[in-house]
């Protein structure tokens, strides 16, 4: 972004990578898959690179409002400095925070989640799907991220992407509004869970496995970690894969 600003270019879009997309080995792959798709669709976009910082979502949800607002205010200064208008991100937590919580602190942008953005690219014909994708008739189940679903009512875009793959979308028992959390939201990602009878991600993984899907599609870095751990725990990581929607689309186009 800094380089483009020096040249006086204002790109149509800022891609917000998020901490998981930047540092988590698994989610870096998602970032790259999404970037490949953006390149293929000839979307002009920029990234903040080292100027990006945590949105503050986990701090706010763990109750540290000071830290959240420090992060948010600093990020908003950077974003406003570059006159950013539209942001796309592959993290529902960053998406929710920037979209819903930054406006109160002076950061007002159009914020889109990557599932919606990909859906739009395909619908507008900027990305074309193959006649027959490798996922044709593959059983895929989609795990609703709470921060996309209940928090922001994004239920259709992710499912639409799976339909674009001509895959056989099978729903888990608890889906959409009734979707069951992966266990990582509300800053749970960063601590051990309280004492109980079962881990939340195991409960959700079992539900996903009951669908006999061979692919669990997710749209959130935390859900991906939790479900991947879940299928490993169930010794099913050989025959069942957890893949992000962007990875599925990219794979179907051999990217």
């Amino acid at each position: 972004m800094a380089e483009l600003a020096q040249k006086g270019i204002e790109p149509e879009l800022l891609l917000w990578i998020g901490c998981a997309g930047s540092y988590d080995e698994r989610y870096k792959k998602v970032t790259r898959a999404f970037v490949r798709l953006l390149n293929l669709a000839k979307v002009s976009f920029a990234v903040l690179g080292e100027e990006e910082a945590c949105t503050g979502d986990p701090a706010r949800r763990a109750g540290n409002e000071f830290l959240f607002q420090m992060q948010a205010t600093a990020n908003i200064q950077v974003l406003n400095g570059y006159k950013v208008k539209k942001i796309v991100t592959a993290c529902p937590h960053c998406f929710n925070t920037i979209k819903n919580e930054y406006p109160d602190l002076g950061g007002k942008y159009e914020v889109v989640h990557h599932s919606e953005f990909l859906q739009q690219l395909i619908q507008e014909g900027r990305l074309t799907m193959e006649e027959e994708t490798e996922f044709k008739d593959t059983k895929i189940t989609y795990h609703d991220s709470c921060y996309l679903g209940r928090s922001n009512h994004i239920y259709d875009a992710p499912r639409q992407l799976i339909k674009f793959l001509q895959a056989d979308l099978v729903e888990m028992e608890r889906n959409k509004e009734n979707g069951f959390c992966c266990g990582a939201g509300g800053a749970q990602m960063f601590k051990e869970s309280e004492k109980g009878t079962k881990d939340i991600n195991i409960e959700r993984t079992e539900e996903a496995l009951e669908t006999h899907a061979t692919i669990i599609a997710s749209a959130c870095p935390f859900c991906m970690t939790m479900l991947s751990d879940g299928i490993k725990n169930k010794d099913r990581d050989e025959d069942v894969k957890v893949l992000d929607l962007a990875e599925l689309i990219a794979k179907s186009k051999n990217l």
């Binding site: 930047s22 690179g49 910082a53 945590c54 830290l67 420090m70 992060q71 960063f190 601590k191």
Partner: peptide, 23 residues
């Protein structure tokens, strides 16, 4: 996690200089 965000601007302890490594 709080102190990671304070010092490295990420909930995980990675140096900010590695933020763009994915590219």
């Amino acid at each position: 996690m709080f102190s990671n965000i304070e010092t490295s601007f990420s909930p995980w302890k990675f140096p900010p200089s590695e933020r763009f490594k994915w590219a």
